[in-house]
Simulated scan of single mutants.
Amino acid sequence: MLENAPDGTFGGKEEASRGLLATGGFETARTFEETKHLEVSGAGFAAGNMLNLTLIVGIDVDSIDLSKITINGIALNPKLDSYVLSEDKKTIIIKLHDGFQLTSKTPAIAVNGLKTQFGNGVKNDESNNKAKIPCRERI
């Protein structure tokens, strides 16, 4: 973003513009995020057939696809299930359809395809971009 002088030293003599500072801040945040282990950190069922997926970073709402979230190997149905993203974009609150029933007290939940607000993939396993989430017992 900023070029060095011909002798290799930083030769900046002009003030940074607002746009340059904004771009620098965004790029710094994106680069820093890439160094973190991005993951879905937890899940919990709540009254009213709700499933809360907690993340360590903000999520791009356009990357959420309910059909790529599975519970005990069964994909959620975007036509029957719905979700909202919390204001801080770190919790996906999923409303499961009325007929949905858990077959286990400790369901296996897997999430594919989530992206952060900076476009980085959210995962636990580097090889397959899939997050397997510990789930708290249903309330």
Rank of each mutant, 00 (worst) to 15 (best):
46 A>S: 11
107 P>E: 05
46 A>Y: 14
50 M>A: 05
2 L>R: 14
50 M>N: 07
52 N>S: 14
66 L>K: 03
17 S>G: 08
82 S>E: 03
85 L>M: 05
89 K>Q: 11
76 L>W: 01
77 N>E: 11
82 S>P: 07
103 T>H: 12
74 I>E: 10
25 G>C: 12
46 A>W: 06
111 V>N: 00
100 F>P: 00
113 G>H: 01
8 G>D: 02
28 T>K: 06
42 G>R: 11
92 I>P: 02
137 E>D: 12
92 I>W: 06
38 L>A: 05
22 A>R: 12
26 F>Q: 02
73 G>S: 06
68 K>Q: 15
102 L>E: 00
67 S>R: 03
88 D>W: 10
8 G>E: 02
78 P>H: 00
60 D>Y: 04
116 T>G: 02
54 T>S: 13
90 K>C: 05
11 G>L: 04
81 D>L: 10
117 Q>N: 15
123 K>A: 11
86 S>L: 09
1 M>P: 05
93 I>G: 00
86 S>H: 04
3 E>S: 07
120 N>R: 10
66 L>D: 00
48 G>K: 09
11 G>F: 02
127 S>T: 13
131 A>P: 04
105 K>Q: 09
43 A>E: 06
30 R>L: 04
138 R>P: 04
108 A>L: 12
54 T>H: 15
16 A>N: 08
24 G>H: 08
103 T>F: 14
96 L>I: 03
88 D>P: 01
75 A>I: 01
29 A>C: 11
40 V>W: 02
69 I>V: 06
125 D>C: 07
131 A>C: 15
124 N>Y: 07
59 I>N: 00
14 E>I: 08
112 N>Y: 07
